[in-house]
Every structure is written in C-alpha cells, then in structure tokens.
Design a protein around this nucleic acid. Structure first.
Lengths: 223, 223
DNA sequence: TATAAGACTTATGTATACAGACACGAAAGG
DNA sequence: CCTTTCGTGTCTGTATACATAAGTCTTATA
C-alpha cells in the first residue's frame, strides 16, 4: 500500500470508514497514516480535510481527526432524510423513467428475486443496491443522484445490518414489487410514498434494534 | 487581510464564492491566494480541498482550482432538489412545530410583510431567509437543516436575483401566507406542497430569465 | 508562412523542517 | 495520600524546498 497520492488516500480512507473498518470515534493520526501509505504528512492532511468536509470525520483544531462519532439521534435523522430523498427520487422517476429504463428495472427486480430466494444477505444487498441505483438514474437529475448516493454511502454500514434481520429480505422484495408497479404505472404519489416507506422501515427496524442496547455511540458492522 | 489560518481562508473564499465575487469558471491560483492572505501555500491548499469537497470549486489534478462552473442544466437540477427538500421540511415541520415556534413564525411573517411593503429587495431577502430558517428549525432534524442550508447557500446568488424580478416579492409574500396557514393547521401535505411550489417558482422564473440569454455558463450577481 | 519540435516558464504535488499547543506524567507541596 | 504544578514529549499547523508535469514561446524546417 505504498506511495499513493492524496486522492488515493482519501478514497481508501473513505472506503474503510464507510465499510466500518474504522469505528466511529477512532482517532486518525497523520503520522500513522503517512507511514502506512508510505508518504509524507502533506497528502494525508489533504485527504483528511476532504473527508472532514464530507462529514465522515471530525476535525478539531489542534486535536486531530476522529471518525465522525454518530449519535443515535443523528443517525435517526440521517435515516429520515434518506427516506425522504428516496421518496423524492421515486416521485420524480415515476414521471421521467423511459420505457427502456423501466425494462431494465423489471429485469433487475427479477434478479433480486433470485437473490432473495438464495437467502444470501450479501448477495441480495448487492442486487438491491443495483435496483435502487436504477431508480436513481430514472430521476434524470445528476445532482440529486450524487446527493442521495453520498448519504446512502454514509449510512451503508448501518443499512447493511438491516437485511440480516429475520424476514427483512422477503419484506424488502415484496416492497420492491409494489414500487415497480407504481413506477410502471407512472403513479408519482404512490411511487414516492412506497419508496419512502421502504427506506423508513430500515430506520424503524434500526431504532428497534438499537433500543435493545443502552449505547449512545454506535459501532457499525466491521465487514 | 493578513495571516489568517486555513479555516479563515476557507470561510472567506466560501463567502466570496457564494456571494458571486468570484464568477464560476474563475481560476484560483494557490500562490495568488497565499500572497493575498499573507500565508504560505499550505493553508491555502487545505482550504481549497475543503471547498472542492463541498462542491464550490472544481479541483483537477495538476490543473488547479476553478470556481465550480455551473451549467444551466445542473443549476436547474439543484433548484429542483432545493424545492423538493424545502417541501420535505414543510411536511415534517407541519407535524412537529411547537406552538411557540408557530408564534415566532407568524411574527417573522409579519416582519416580512413590512419588508415587502418597503419594496426593498435586499431587506425582504434577509427577512425572507429568516422566515425559511424558522421553518427549517421546525423540522427538528439537525441533519436535514444542515443539508438544506448547504444547498441554499450554493444557490444563494441565483436566488437573490429572483426577488428583483417585477412582482416577485408580492407573490412570494402571498405564498408565505398560505404556507403559514398550512403549518398552523398542521396540514402536512399542503405545507409540503406549498413550500415546494414556492421554491419551484424561483426555478421556473430562473429558467425563463436565463432562456433569454444564450449562455451555457452563468455568472451570478456580484454583490 | 505554417507547422512541429524542443527548451523554458510556471504552477501543482510532495517532502521536510520548524514552531507551538495540548496531554500526559513526574515531582513537590499540602 | 491526594492535589497541583511544572516539564517533557508528541502531534498538529505552517513555512519552505524540491520534483514534476502542463502550458507557452521560440526556432527551425518544410
């Protein structure tokens, strides 16, 4: 892992944080990272600045960088925004998706069916992501897509957890079915409402799950 | 303007870009900025990285920083997302605003009335911003507020333009009236729909205005 | 005259050096 | 034995130095 440039380092750290490799609250020391990547502190610092701007890490003056410690409240807030934005995507996609885009979506839905039957959570997770990506694309709003995916990425480790809960995969797939039908019929309101609910459930399940613990700080799944 | 630190520099540049002082497409050279702020290139570079992460500037390797050149398409996309997010804020605020928050909102609405009658676009702009900020606060979702305000900030120079259009201030105020009533009555759907429309109008007027020019690149008002 | 190749200039990317702040620990005093 | 204070070390913030790539201008040749 030697001699990466600043952008490689940012990418690597981003992936590692998003995947939960660095738990929230973990201290990230410049010298340590510099040694690890085989570079000087300069590119490391620049990578950290960028990550701080996108909210993945917290950067306190003279106190260094820590992986953004997400409180339960904030996580719930983020899930709420995620659900709303997905709903918006659904509403817009319902009136903008082309017939060929709808064909692709139905095809992906079919693939999700197979993944769901296999029972492999990771497999379903991947195909599920593709399914949603197709809906995003159907918005024909690049900016919206970027924003949603940025948020989706930040919530990734916490979302992934959901699909491991009993029965969630089957439910998720059933919801997809309704969403596909709404999009197919061009029913804006329904598509938006269903997608929002689809994501909200993750949030509710998440809250249920976490209320079982007495933790105010959450440690995501370390894949 | 001598001897600022990296964060001061970021703040200053952010303000200057948001206010349109640096037109989109303008090149930002590290050495020039360093001289101007009386520091070395190091803090300037870090400020630029952060600005690039928040989308205000574009940072191409070996090609330096340019103020993000917003294409017309992208600007329209951003306005669309802005409208949707405001709508979401309205929906949520309608069911979460406390009576005291509603009192404050009505009070601010009254102040907007005075500003509207004065005919001073800048004055109305400022009070209008406070009005919307109160609705944001009514969401009780800090994360959503941060995201909306980030976007609002980026669109600031283009939004400001709208209020100078003939009759826009009166229309805007009338729309506020309906929004206040919906929030007061706790009508989620209406509040969301009205707020979304309120912002969408800016987008439409903007598109109308810009279609008069044959420009693909836009230069915001340099206040 | 136009075009292409090569040197030169300039700006970015990275490394290193230095200064200062914060944290931890040891030692002294109560 | 506990508390407080001072010293030392470590990490961050900034400056400067060096390497390299992109762009430009000049010059030579067709």
């Amino acid at each position: 892992m030697l001699h990466k440039n600043a952008d490689d380092i940012r990418q690597t750290l981003e992936d590692e944080i998003a995947s939960g490799e660095h738990a929230p609250g973990t201290r990230l020391e410049e010298l340590v990272l510099a040694k690890r990547f085989g570079v000087s502190r300069t590119p490391v610092r620049e990578a950290l600045r960028i990550l701080s701007a996108s909210g993945l890490i917290e950067l306190k003056p003279r106190k260094g960088a820590t992986v953004a410690p997400l409180s339960l409240e904030r996580l719930v807030e983020m899930f709420e925004v995620m659900a709303e934005m997905e709903g918006v995507c659904g509403t817009i996609a319902a009136r903008r998706m082309t017939t060929s885009e709808l064909t692709f979506l139905r095809h992906q839905h079919f693939i999700c069916a197979e993944a769901a039957q296999s029972g492999d959570a990771d497999h379903y997770y991947a195909e599920n992501a593709r399914f949603h990506a197709l809906i995003y694309a159907g918005c024909h709003n690049e900016f919206l897509i970027e924003e949603v995916q940025r948020l989706r990425r930040r919530l990734q480790p916490y979302r992934r957890l959901q699909l491991r809960l009993k029965g969630r995969i089957a439910d998720s797939f059933a919801e997809h079915q309704a969403i596909v039908e709404a999009l197919d019929a061009g029913e804006e309101e329904a598509a938006g409402r269903l997608l929002k609910a689809h994501i909200s459930i993750q949030s509710h399940r998440f809250a249920d799950w976490v209320s079982g613990l007495n933790a105010t700080r959450l440690v995501p799944e370390t894949t």
